[in-house]
Amino acid sequence: MQWSQLKKHKVVSTATADKVGKVDGFLLDPATRSVVGLTLKKTDSGSVVRWSDLVAVGADAVTVPDAAVVLEPDEAQGALADKRGSVLKKLVLDDDGNALGTVKDIDLDPETGALRELLLDTRTVSGDRLLGVGSYAVVVRAD
């Protein structure tokens, strides 16, 4: 599933069927090469839900067991959520020092959150090549 399709999905509690928020961003952990959480907006409390707390990521909505899994971000989540940790629109460098393009979108596994691919302007980069995400660039292993 591509991020552009997941973005703005509503987040619904399976316990009460209430809408608890709207998907706003994702937390990509370069160490595990997977999306470990979603950031939400328009919630009553908190702004982050861990990927492991999701019930399902569907075509039309993201479901959570109840509104209590939406939490304030802890330090690690906050670091992934800020500008430094985000990958979208960021320059992609390979570890040979050559630029590959900028990240337009990502493709992730809706079951596990694993990063399948980085989608760049003119090419795609397999998720398992990801090495790091920093203030300047996303670094990936060279071909």
Binding site: L131, G132, V139
Partner: peptide, 11 residues
Amino acid sequence: ALPVVTLAGDD
């Protein structure tokens, strides 16, 4: 003038 970038992506 090339940037020096770590594997973590920081210049």
